[in-house]
């Protein structure tokens, strides 16, 4: 077990929990989107920490590819969520 893996992995767990708490408790839709992104970053960190094999050793490329896919999916989901939020605000303003 590597110190770096444990340190970064445990921090990732804290980030996931922080993000989930923010997503559940924030009233503003935009901040909920930010919170879900923070939670996603925690998941990415968990994967990258597990992929790390120590200094001088090549890390496992499979989780890296997963995280790259995840980052792009996260940004498209964020864009769609923001467009939905914008439409929701527009509908509320019209009422």
């Amino acid at each position: 077990m590597l110190t770096a893996q444990v340190l970064y992995g445990l921090t990732a767990c804290v980030i996931v929990a922080l993000g989930l708490r923010g997503a559940l408790l924030h009233a503003s839709l935009l901040q909920r989107v930010v919170a879900i992104n923070v939670m996603g970053a925690g998941v990415f960190m968990l994967l990258i920490a597990v992929a790390y094999r120590g200094p001088g050793l090549p890390p496992d490329p499979l989780p890296h590819a997963l995280v790259l896919t995840g980052i792009v999916v996260a940004v498209s989901a964020t864009a769609l969520a923001l467009a939905l939020a914008r439409r929701l605000h527009a509908e509320q303003d019209n009422d």
Binding site: Y8, I48, P58, P59, H64, V67, I71, V75
Partner: peptide, 22 residues
């Protein structure tokens, strides 16, 4: 953590474009 591919994507997409969208 020796993940430069992910670092580039995070800086460009995760921080940059997500930030611009938000």
């Amino acid at each position: 953590l020796l993940a430069p591919d992910v670092a580039l994507a995070e800086a460009a997409i995760g921080a940059g474009l997500s930030g611009a969208l938000l």
